[in-house]
Design a protein around this nucleic acid. Structure first.
Lengths: 174, 174
DNA sequence: ACCTGAACACCGTTCAAGT
DNA sequence: ACCTGAACACCGTTCAAGT
């Protein structure tokens, strides 16, 4: 006798993402996720191989979210601001992007809108180098910021603006 | 009747660091650390509050290691190469730097040698901005590299060299 | 076909008891 | 003063048994 499905993979990933942002990665327990979707822990294994791949799926969904935001931004400067805003809104998900085993294609897709923007201002030949320069800088800035590595005073908003102006300026003058 | 100490905090942190690089953060178990230093797990709590602070201490030691290497480097370009080499040699420790709760001072001390180098080439006024620009970029580049986020081809060694040349060049022309 | 209870191996951590 | 065995609560994961 078939039993109706009581949850779905999407529901599970969403619940995990919610738990992640609420209590950090340690809070996304198979038991907590199961409870949130109204099921017992063993049932999760019908839809997900194990906890590690579940975290990878959460990271993948976060990458999709970030990519969509970057696509909606207009211009390089705006993209860089959107990037940092994402990290502030969803710091745990942001960390997961580089911590969990996220689908490499989803992670790479994040760079596509940036690549388009740099291509427009620096030419196709240097678009990849420029995009890597910008995304690496923004990723590092936010990573260090979230880790509390910037201790030497000064407003971080200003520091970020300074970096944007400097980097974009250095690209144009090539 | 007093019992002689059978281990030390240093030994514990070293064992944890070794386990970390061998099997990732999941492998640094209180039991595994205890076994490596010749003691039972409960004894570790005489020297360390809990696992989280132990990981923080490992991160702090890694920060010291990195700082020493950066101090020994000569010039900005060399520092940036040393930075990436460190991340390749000790990828798990590198991740821990921004993942565990590392002593903020030790983390900040990492920037001191970079700050000295930028001060020499860009002047004291812009030394902090320049140092942040460089460390943020290098951190992000390596983080993305380790996460496999650079999928769009091209040699990463060359890409790193390109970034160094571009960034240092942009600083000098200020 | 999906779900669950029970079980297993393995964690981190506490604490009374040993020496 | 340090160390340990035993215990506790809590994990991830498997699987036979239910419906």
């Amino acid at each position: 006798m078939p039993t109706p499905e009581r949850t779905s993979l999407d529901e599970i990933v969403s619940a995990a993402a919610r738990l992640l942002e609420t209590g950090g990665v340690a809070a996304v327990t198979m038991q907590a996720v199961a409870q949130d979707v109204g099921v017992k822990a063993p049932s999760l294994y019908k839809r997900v191989r194990d906890r590690e791949t579940l975290l990878g799926l959460v990271g993948g969904a976060a990458a999709d979210d970030l990519t969509a935001r970057l696509e909606a931004a207009s211009g390089i400067e705006d993209q860089l601001l959107v990037f940092r805003r994402f990290a502030h809104e969803r710091p745990e998900a942001f960390r997961l992007l580089f911590t969990a085993t996220v689908d490499a294609d989803k992670l790479a897709a994040t760079s596509a809108p940036v690549l388009r923007a740099t291509s427009a201002t620096v030419g196709a030949d240097h678009a990849l180098d420029a995009a890597r320069l910008l995304t690496a800088w923004a990723t590092g800035f936010v990573t260090m910021e979230l880790a509390g590595a910037f201790r030497l005073g000064g407003d971080l908003d200003d520091a970020y603006d300074y970096g944007i102006a400097h980097l974009v300026g250095s690209l144009v003058s090539d």
